[in-house]
């Protein structure tokens, strides 16, 4: 697994750096007093060169690694990571409609239940967290929490 990942990472670095160089070449040149000066493309290209060399090194290092054990199968734990990422995107969307408090309450309780916390315990802990955040971030720090369609964060 690791061998493959290191090689994929090396290839990704090279592809990313190539894309950065291509994009940087479209930036206009900087000229000062009639002379060319280091423009906006200078630093990204410099970094991309370093990253291309690093990418090649990663591929070589990956190729030298011994053959690996089998990849572990799909499990309840592994699916949790994916669910959290999906929930995060949904949470942001929900915040825009329901407001901060309701969306957080829903997100927190659902996620805790998924992670095998009892419903009432999940509800209590999430509610306390929401009250703390709304009072500290909202009231003390005057941070505008997402208001949702109701116009209020709760």
């Amino acid at each position: 697994m690791k061998k493959k990942l290191v090689i994929i990472f090396g290839i990704a670095l090279i592809l990313l750096s190539t894309a950065v160089i291509m994009e940087s070449l479209t930036f206009p040149e900087a000229v000062s007093a009639g002379k060319k000066t280091p423009g906006p493309s200078f630093f990204p290209i410099l970094l991309s060169v370093v990253l291309i060399i690093s990418g090649i090194q990663q591929i070589a290092a990956g190729a030298r690694m011994p053959h690996e054990e089998k990849i572990p199968g799909w499990s309840w734990g592994a699916s949790n990571s994916v669910i959290i990422i999906l929930f995060l995107f949904l949470y942001v969307l929900l915040m825009e409609y329901l407001g901060y408090a309701a969306a957080t309450l829903l997100f927190g309780v659902l996620l805790m239940v998924r992670l095998k916390v009892g419903f009432f315990r999940a509800l209590t802990v999430t509610a306390l967290t929401v009250i703390f955040i709304v009072s500290i971030f909202g009231q003390v720090f005057h941070i505008q929490l997402p208001a949702g369609l109701s116009g209020l964060p709760w």
């Binding site: 901060y100 957080t104 805790m112 992670l115 916390v117 802990v125 999430t126 929401v130 955040i133």
Partner: peptide, 20 residues
């Protein structure tokens, strides 16, 4: 508190910390 509770609290704070 058990990790399954703390991790969700951390997540909620991570979201609001980034947003704020």
């Amino acid at each position: 508190l058990p990790r399954n509770i703390v991790m969700v609290i951390v997540l909620i704070f991570s979201v609001i910390g980034s947003y704020a």
